[in-house]
């Protein structure tokens, strides 16, 4: 049996979690969470931690003075792949117009997750 103490990062409450694993490395229990997201986070964080990556990329052809468009991975990606995603973004220039949710690059860094825009640029 092993116990790990984590801080849930799902929301600003930052619940202190205790995750108990058995000798096979399987999660036996998650305590300290106040919502189901906390339990899911606790289970994932000790087995396959993931993060959403956000960044901003240059945009060309915009009507206004906007130089950059913010982007994110459409869902969480393995924590170990954060820098692969960042490297795969390098050099990308987004063509305006672009809208929230538009795919900027599909399957970023082979994660199976799309990189999408998080603001509108006309």
């Amino acid at each position: 049996m092993e116990e790990r103490n984590l801080i849930c990062i799902n929301c600003p409450m930052g619940c202190p979690l205790t995750v108990t694993l058995n000798d096979a490395g399987e999660v036996v229990s998650v305590t300290g969470n106040t919502c189901p997201r906390g339990e899911a986070y606790g289970r994932k964080e000790v087995t396959n931690p993931t993060r959403i990556v956000t960044s901003s990329l240059p945009v060309s052809g915009a009507k206004g003075q906007i130089a950059m468009v913010s982007v994110k991975t459409a869902s969480d990606i393995p924590k170990g792949a954060i820098f692969d995603v960042v490297r795969d973004m390098k050099g990308l220039v987004v063509e305006a117009p672009v809208h929230i949710g538009d795919v900027v690059k599909a399957d970023i860094a082979g994660t199976g997750v799309d990189l999408v825009a998080t603001r509108d640029v006309e």
């Binding site: 600003p12 956000t54 901003s56 913010s70 982007v71 994110k72 929230i100 998080t118 603001r119 509108d120």
Partner: peptide, 25 residues
């Protein structure tokens, strides 16, 4: 919010995790 491009906004209001520009929009 326009420059807060990170995620974590809106869990209470919209029950989903948004970035700053998405929340502002």
């Amino acid at each position: 919010l326009n420059q807060c491009i990170h995620n974590g906004f809106g869990l209470h209001t919209f029950k989903e995790e948004l970035t700053g520009p998405e929340y502002a929009r």
